[in-house]
Amino acid sequence: MNAEVAAATAAPEKKEFWRWQENTWFDETKNWKDAKIITCGIDVGSVSSQAVLVCDGELYGYNSMRTGNNSPDSAKNALQGIMDKIGMKLEDINYVVGTGYGRVNVPFAHKAITEIACHARGANYMGGNQVRTILDMGGQDCKAIHCDEKGKVTNFLMNDKCAAGTGRGMEVISDLMQIPIAELGPRSFDVETEPEAVSSICVVFAKSEALGLLKAGYTKNMVIAAYCQAMAERVVSLLERIGVEEGFFITGGIAKNPGVVKRIERLLGIKQVETKIDSQIAGALGAALFGYTLMQKQAAK
């Protein structure tokens, strides 16, 4: 078979437009070996897994990656990703807390804490003690949380019955539009007039509507804008159930999508608290901070 025939008959390369950027970071100005207490939070979510290291109560490093087909391996891989970069071993970590959908399947965790408590604690660290209302837009669920100035949950609501208003929904639209997921947010503003939202109740219906809009002559950017608006309306209705206070903070992958974030801000009439820390690590960071508090309590006994 000559090269031309081989090229013509080969299966087309499948592009994964939904694939978001996995990343690893650690604070190069510090040395973890100087820390007295090292704690780790592992957030095994339905779509992404994060491992966060906290040295003496301060964020030191993290690894964020896609969740595999089994929770224990996802937890191990997430932690190994950051430990390999900094030359750390599991024995060097004093306490590990598991959280997220797969929290009970983190084999080396000393304790499991729900992602609701961990996101509130993480948001309190990332956004400061002014944070009161938290929206976690996860891979396959969405949570609205109220917390006090210490990051303790006072009210929460979770919707995990359908994928509308979740990261997975955005991945579906990314693949449908054949546009990389990171470009969806900026492109949603590149429209002359803001279109009506598509269905905010179900991703399957939203996808059908999106296809219908394309056939009706909508540009891709208009369809993306309609979907971002639907997602914003969906989560705002959840937030309104528990009430929205100033000190609004968004965690989870969708916090990186300005198309959704700006529309939520517009609907609520308030701005979110800004942070430089990756919004996806809030749960794991909160878990690591819980671990640090538990270690301090143990030491005080």
Partner: peptide
Amino acid sequence: MIANYGYKDGSGEYYI
């Protein structure tokens, strides 16, 4: 703490 368990779907909002 107020804990809300339930969901919202096409037929309405159901929370305890």
